[in-house]
Amino acid sequence: MDVLDRKIINLLQAGFPLSEEPYLEVARQLGIEERELLERLSNLLDENTLSRFGPMYDAQKLGGAFSLVAVRVPEDDFDKVTEIVNSYPEVAHNYKRDHDYNMWYVLATDSPEKIAEVNSDIEKKIGMKVFNMPKLEEYYIGLRLPV
């Protein structure tokens, strides 16, 4: 990754135009050819320096329901509980964190009722209380990393 790649990443993190020739507009801002911008962008995506490029949709506004759920899992049971929790297709992400609350999973379902159903099912299977922490209000989502 060179200086130009960094400039491209920083500029495109801020946004991208909705116009007929948006890459040309961005390339002009960077003082490069459109073709070079497209090549570099393609490489940055291929090598996974960028994980995505495009519109970020608000899944909740598209009708989905989401929640972050925490569990305090005794270390000895961790693998077993992980296997049960991960087996649910509604569990989109699951992270181990270094805390008393050491398992944090994200549920993605097509309705809010389904969140409660899946959580109560998981509680029964693992025999532990799960702490359902859906967002009540969102203040920011996005990533702006200076590179």
């Binding site: 491209i8 993190q13 946004g15 991208f16 940055l44 608000d58 598209l62 996005g142």
Partner: peptide, 10 residues
């Protein structure tokens, strides 16, 4: 519905 159109760094 679209939060923004942008690049997401890994």
């Amino acid at each position: 519905i679209i939060r923004r159109i942008a690049a997401v760094p890994n």
